[in-house]
Design a protein around this nucleic acid. Structure first.
Lengths: 246, 246
DNA sequence: CGCAGTTTTGATGGACCTCAAAGACCGTGG
DNA sequence: CCACGGTCTTTGAGGTCCATCAAAACTGCG
């Protein structure tokens, strides 16, 4: 297994230091978090927790990508969350998780045991305020996702997912990836179908169509290049330019 | 216009005192909120704010029901939130709203101007912690909703919506309405279709089917009686008893 | 090279959408 | 009190997008 590529003793060298739940912390507050943290690593495809299980910690995703999934009695599955580096896992004040959490790639978590973290949440306002901010961001993206699930066509769904992944892999949420942007899909066709409320066959067909029309270029099954990002944006069905131009 | 049916000077008589963002406040904290609050009432069907508009206040819904909607360029609409009494409207730290907000029935809001509220959020931890708790609850229900949108059949969607409305109208979220429960639909068929990612015709057909099979009884278009609540629950496709019995 | 898992492609069917018209509900005014 | 009009809802007929079932092609790895 790979070694973690940063100094686990020093939060200052942490790649998510300025985006995670600790982002607003001063040095002394950071020290309190540092005192109760520990790391865990999961292999690609490995479950992190199952719905209904107790989760003894909360955590920040440091590297890798994890998914939250709901499963119905008859096996139908819907992804309901996708955790990128700096995203927060777990709910303070609740011991049982509602969703299956799975590592989509190798995932490293920065974990805090529940009780000390909740105590800290009460004492250190900058952690609570940052967590509120992050939760509101997640609620916003959940609502965008609801529009995708409820109203978009299969083709628009695929384009939307590609845009979301391209943006998040590029690091900052607000910047627009440039033309020629290249990124890896962090998931299988099946996971994409669970994200989008489609079957894996429909996902495959729509990706093939976008490829044939030159909207995207594939090398291998996971690597995507976007020659013209605006073209991809048009395919999402969203208002590309905020309604300012034509 | 009807008069508000409680004393607007006294938070103690407020119907949502123990469930809203002020739920965890002590008397002195409540006094600070009371000092900056004001009320607004909107008629059924009236817009509260449009997506992209500035919203100068945040608010708790005191009475009535409001919806959050997203609209695509070509007119497709998806409801992304449904605000019942005690739910919170607006996002601290952001001046512009992302969704159209509409009063579905006559709505009374308990409003706080943004700046004083955000100031109070910094000074009074019990408000921030309650808001975090409420936001996490909303995120949970948004994720349940995503399962509905992505994986359920039209019939299951209708049954799920009826259960959600029955539960929330009954007041507490956890209690199961008894058999013979009667409630009013707070929205038109069209709004139901925007909630569920369907057309209004499909909504109407599925309601007719549930009615014909005796799962529900209608009197007028808005009043619903559920003779056997477990029967309705089965129609949602969800695990009825948490997988404990059969 | 061969094998297991993943992805693509094909053929067919069904759930839901679209377009259209009739029917029910409800407030208003005669 | 009932007739009238507008809006909302129901019902019908036909079409389409996506799911389902099935098999071939590809990818990656020992």
């Amino acid at each position: 297994m790979d070694k973690i590529a940063f100094d686990t003793k020093d939060c200052g060298s942490c790649p998510i230091r300025h985006r995670a739940v600790c982002a607003n912390c001063q040095a002394d507050e950071l020290a309190q978090l540092e005192a109760i943290k520990f790391y865990r690593t999961y292999q690609a495809g490995q479950p992190i927790v199952w719905a209904g299980d107790r989760l003894e910690f909360v955590a920040s995703v440091v590297t890798g990508i994890a998914s939250l999934n709901q499963t119905m009695e008859d096996g139908r599955r819907q992804m309901v969350g996708l955790l990128f580096p700096s995203d927060f896992l777990g709910r303070p004040g609740r011991n049982v998780v509602n969703y299956d959490v799975t590592a989509m790639s190798e995932v490293t978590l920065c974990c805090f045991r529940k009780a000390p973290f909740e105590d800290l949440l009460r004492r250190v306002p900058s952690v609570g305020s940052r967590l509120l901010e992050m939760t509101l961001d997640e609620l916003d993206s959940a609502r965008e996702w609801m529009l995708i699930l409820g109203r978009k066509t299969a083709r628009e769904k695929i384009a939307s997912l590609l845009v979301i992944i391209a943006r998040r892999q590029a690091g900052l949420l607000l910047t627009k990836p440039g033309d020629g942007a290249q990124f890896d899909l962090p998931m299988s066709r099946e996971s994409m179908s669970e994200y989008l409320g489609l079957t894996l066959e429909t996902v495959s067909r729509q990706i093939s169509a976008l490829k044939k029309e030159g909207v995207i270029v594939l090398s291998g099954n996971r690597s995507v290049t976007v020659p013209d990002f605006d073209r991809l944006l048009e395919e999402t069905g969203d208002d590309v330019d905020g309604g300012m131009l034509a």
